[in-house]
């Protein structure tokens, strides 16, 4: 029986894939897909690079199933780019540990976890009594900040350069243009807003708006990242903000709206259900998303 088994193992590598294939890049979200698509557009058009996005844009990236189709995509990936800092930890480790692809192991050129090289917003769970919750490595939702996305663009360009050494200059140049576009759009949208507007976020994600818009986050509907809003916590928020200037409540479209409605009923604050990821993994999709986020606040007239 043992001999039969060893024969099976020894025989199969002959069936391995051939050369001349495109470089397969797998990313977890449309935001990261946008970076790859914009930086490597000529390579995508010439089919030298094939991009696959795992998470559908309307989903909460914290909670996805480790689907068989993800396994198949990561098995064939030359480069896997993930957000990191625990955003995908509920499902991605089950994929990478079982996809039988040594190229995408941590530390390999085929793996880029962007959060590791970015300065993240601290989470209330990074230190202190609540340490160790879903955002213990910092707030991983940096895709909501175009300025951090600009930094991420540079990291992506350098890593793509490893796979296309002849195109390195082109990739760096394109990432520079993308950085400029991100920064200019952020600046433009920021200038349109009446400064000093305050908001409560459902989860520690849209608080990244504070990083590039003249707005201020004053709390969260979740008592801790990943814990659903409790009525006690919501009542405390109402009490705390009753005597203060009105603000607004922002939540992701996939979040339940009861918490936001509660604050709306008690405090009269407007509520906004926002998408967190672009519909399409490209600059147009992401630019539209920046506009949608900015529109959740009052514009200068």
């Amino acid at each position: 029986m043992l001999r039969l088994f060893l024969f099976f193992i020894a025989f199969l590598p002959i069936l391995n894939a051939s050369a001349g294939e495109p470089v397969r890049v797998v990313v977890t979200t449309n935001s990261l897909g946008m970076l790859v698509n914009e930086i490597a557009q000529p390579l995508v058009e010439q089919r030298q690079l094939e991009l696959k996005v795992l998470a559908s844009p309307g989903r909460d990236v914290h909670y996805l199933d480790a689907r068989p189709s993800f396994m198949a995509a990561v098995r064939r990936a030359d480069l896997l780019i993930d957000t990191g800092a625990g955003l995908e930890e509920g499902w991605l480790p089950a994929i990478t540990a079982n996809a039988a692809n040594p190229d995408i192991n941590s530390g390999q050129p085929g793996r880029l976890s962007l959060a590791a090289s970015l300065q993240l917003r601290p989470s209330i769970t990074t230190t202190g009594p609540h340490a160790g919750h879903v955002h213990r490595h910092g707030n991983p939702h940096f895709n909501i900040d175009p300025l951090r996305m600009a930094k991420a663009a540079r990291l992506v360009a350098r890593r793509l350069g490893h796979f296309f050494p002849d195109q390195k200059a082109l990739l760096i140049k394109r990432s520079y243009h993308l950085e400029q576009a991100l920064k200019q759009t952020a600046e433009y949208l920021s200038e349109q807003l009446i400064p000093g507007q305050r908001f409560i976020a459902y989860h520690e994600d849209v608080d990244y708006l504070e990083a590039w818009l003249p707005v201020q986050n004053i709390g969260y509907l979740e008592p801790l990242p990943g814990l659903p809003p409790t009525s006690k916590h919501l009542r405390e928020l109402v009490e705390k903000h009753q005597q203060q200037e009105p603000a607004r409540v922002l939540y992701a479209r996939f979040n339940p709206d009861q918490g936001a409605r509660f604050l709306n009923e008690r405090l009269g604050w407007p509520t906004y259900a926002l998408p967190l990821e672009p519909e399409t993994p490209d600059w147009n999709g992401y630019k539209e998303l920046l506009q949608v986020w900015a529109n959740a606040f009052e514009q200068k007239s």
Partner: peptide, 11 residues
Amino acid sequence: KTRSLPAGFQL
């Protein structure tokens, strides 16, 4: 369990 064998194999 291995995560370093080539060609889609794991032991």
